[in-house]
């Protein structure tokens, strides 16, 4: 069910890597769980949609008033890679 190319795509979307020996165990687990999901086909959902939940009237949304956010001090506490006011990362190329 979860073949090599599917597993590769899911790993890419998840930004995860696995070793060669882990691959078959992970694909096996995933397949078993996904097979279990087949139980849902027992239920006739024609004409039923998840539909949007309880709506909020537009008039009750957040008022457009500014509130103070985090201070630079807080940001420095978050990461050692927060330097000179920026979060530094390896060079951004076209890759995601």
């Amino acid at each position: 069910m979860v073949d090599d190319s599917t597993l590769d795509k899911m790993l890419y979307l998840s930004r995860l890597q696995v070793s060669r020996d882990e691959r078959s165990a992970i694909a096996g687990n995933m397949s078993e769980i996904i097979d279990y999901f087949a139980i849902l086909s027992k239920y006739d959902t024609s004409g039923v949609t998840g539909g949007p939940g309880e709506a909020v009237p537009a008039g009750e949304l957040r008022e457009d008033a500014v509130r103070e956010g985090l201070a630079q001090r807080d940001l420095k506490g978050l990461s050692p890679h927060f330097l000179d006011g920026y979060f530094s990362v390896p060079r951004v190329l076209d890759e995601g």
């Binding site: 457009d64 008033a65 500014v66 509130r67 956010g69 985090l70 927060f82 006011g85």
Partner: peptide, 27 residues
């Protein structure tokens, strides 16, 4: 040109000191 950001109350404005208008939500 709203006063605040779309989903948090940080000020919506161009430029300025980097990372000076951030909060738990937009970060």
């Amino acid at each position: 040109l709203t006063k605040t950001k779309a989903f948090c109350a940080c000020e919506n404005r161009f430029g300025g000191i980097p990372n000076s208008r951030v909060c738990p939500v937009c970060l």
